[in-house]
Design a protein around this nucleic acid. Structure first.
Lengths: 363, 363
DNA sequence: AAGCAGCGGGAATGCGCTTTCCCGATTCAC
DNA sequence: GTGAATCGGGAAAGCGCATTCCCGCTGCTT
């Protein structure tokens, strides 16, 4: 027993399919109240559910929003996803999920799939990369997106414009001032840390990572400090952990630049991990070697993911309104082709215990 | 410039739409190699992307998997979502996301929306409830699901069968032995804790919560202990936090049943929160009042969400293979109407520092 | 050599719905 | 009271694709 169709409803109500369609969906023309009543009654006596595929085909629009993330179980992305979901609900749309682990090729495929489903708009969260190994992938992704836009699709990107994107139609980006915020963080840290600074960064070429690194270095320079060493590693917890292990050696080594160290009364090292999950990984690594934070090293992250709320030691970070970012990233439904090209959000440096000067009593 | 259609491709290739369709999609009949080549070339010179809506309409199947969760940003659900996503990818399908905050009415609406989109299958994660206030909602949800199944849909449910579900066609549940695992946890804890036991539970009527409570009590009974007090609260971090606050009073109160207490050398209280986020909330509450874990209270959760990996004190819990659960919950694509009704997974009691006997040196 | 199965391709139909177009019946203005 | 404008409803044409049916052809059997 297949689902009942509009035609069946119409027949049962004794009207034409056209009329039934008009009453059951908000058409411009509203049939008479008596007829409307009959149709509605017929509809729910049959348990009629409109076939969204057919509707989409006829109206060429699907009520779908495509969301592309690296990994839905990553707190950063799931917070954004929540925002996207909220916005979608306000627009009476559903969200289609694609996870790509950051591979441009997969992202291209996801865009194509969304296009095939005639998604009304696409949201791309997750950092862009300029690695040469991704060049071709990026180009293809950009091409796919352009085509999608030309066909009337709207796309919202979190963070950076897609590398090589041409179209400016229906393409908007939620800009996160990564560089400025990282600089601000660096300045604040520089004020209270005499020790050496080290940055745990993502792979070279990852835009978000690069921006934050650049900003942090600029902030240090502003404070009259030399640039920090940069360790490139994976953009996830594992990367942070590995870098953390590497740093433990440096921390435990006798002596060290600028004569800092646990016994000097302030942290030998101040570590900036370009995102929170990496900071968490690094913290775990240090802890596994018996080092304490902030006693033996200060550490700060970026994003302020929800996980941090209960993480000890409380991690200093830069708070980003992730959910709002998600909400803002979904293109507004009926917006004209010249929708706002860019919306900005702002963050906030949030200092917590992990970067307090050493020697304070633990809470 | 609208997206190009099969007909355009066919015309460019100088063949009929039928032939073009046959070569571009895996049809039973494969046209000659020369023709196929021509069509394929025409297709990608035009950047042809098949219209999934039209395909779906014609084939009446959509390549969509609907996923219903309470909150995608909750680590428990996002872990399951990851598993679902993995399974979907293996089936060459995409996942449609709906979040409902656990409201049966919203879940019904989500099922209807999925049905409208002709989703091939639906996965419902998130606990079922038997609260009387949800009675009608549950009934309607069950009815909606039954209709969906009768129309050929497949549904997979995590945890419990939907209350009141009739159909046994295309309906399968991933069963989690919540009760037994909770009992096992209780027995292990009983062996090392002399103090009083308290359970922080979700709202009464929430099946998952009820099962775990029942199991835990049974485990205590097995060990010859009296039943634990049960605090009912929200099934989320906030609920855990509030319950935790309430418990701090009890812990700090002078005296106490069975004469336990910090100075007695073992924890006064052993708290079992029915899920990890609640346990985290409770921990935060205790800590906010200056209490230490496990010194002043032992605490255990359930699920072993990924967040726990870096949570301190390391929380005892029951490990559930969440991602696998997600994978298993996705109905297999071509399975006959009499697909396996139930698949089981198993968990593992995982004792960590949060329930170690007090007095041990902190790590 | 005639007959038949088999194959490669095209014409046509339908999936379920929206939407234009059309037509008879009112209502309004003059 | 007649014309035009309006309203309420139905007929029909797609939306883009899959698929059934049909037809002309080749290659085989007897």
């Amino acid at each position: 027993m297949a689902a009942s169709t509009l035609t069946e409803v119409a027949r049962l109500a004794g009207v034409s399919p056209a009329t039934a369609s008009r009453v059951l969906n908000g058409s411009a023309r509203t049939p008479g109240p008596d007829i409307a009543e009959r149709v509605r009654k017929a509809a729910d006596s049959l348990g009629y559910i409109p076939n969204a595929q057919a509707q989409g085909l006829a109206k060429s629009s699907s009520g779908l929003i495509g969301l592309i993330v690296h990994d839905i179980a990553d707190p950063y992305f799931s917070a954004i996803a929540r925002g996207v979901q909220t916005a979608a609900r306000h627009q009476n749309k559903m969200v289609l999920l694609a996870t790509t682990a950051g591979s441009p090729a997969d992202e291209r495929a996801a865009v194509a799939a969304f296009a095939a489903r005639r998604a009304d708009s696409i949201v791309i969260a997750g950092s862009r990369s300029t690695r040469t190994s991704d060049r071709q992938g990026n180009a293809e992704l950009a091409a796919e997106l352009d085509r999608y836009c030309r066909n009337g699709g709207r796309v919202g990107v979190v963070g950076h414009a897609v590398v090589g994107a041409e179209s400016d139609e229906g393409y908007h980006v939620v800009e996160v001032p990564n560089e400025d915020l990282a600089a601000a963080l660096a300045r604040e840290l520089a004020a209270s840390h005499a020790g050496e600074f080290v940055i745990i960064a993502g792979p070279e070429g990852l835009l978000t990572s690069d921006d934050r690194v650049r900003g942090f270095q600029r902030g240090l320079a502003d404070a009259g400090l030399p640039p920090a060493d940069v360790l490139h590693t994976g953009f996830d917890r594992t990367g942070g952990y590995e870098a953390g292990l590497e740093l433990t050696a440096r921390i435990s080594a006798p002596g060290g630049s600028r004569g800092a160290g646990p016994d000097a009364g302030y942290p030998r090292l101040c570590i900036f991990a370009v995102n929170d999950v990496m900071a968490i990984g690094a913290t775990a690594a240090l802890r596994s070697k018996g080092l304490r934070i902030p006693r033996d090293a200060a550490i700060a992250g970026f994003d302020d993911i929800e996980t941090l709320r209960d993480f000890r030691p409380a991690l200093s970070t830069v708070r980003l309104p992730l959910e709002e970012i998600g909400r803002l990233a979904v293109p507004v439904a009926g917006s004209g082709p010249t929708a706002a090209a860019t919306v900005g959000v702002t963050g906030e440096v949030t200092l917590r215990r992990s970067t307090e000067p050493a020697g304070e009593p633990a809470t």
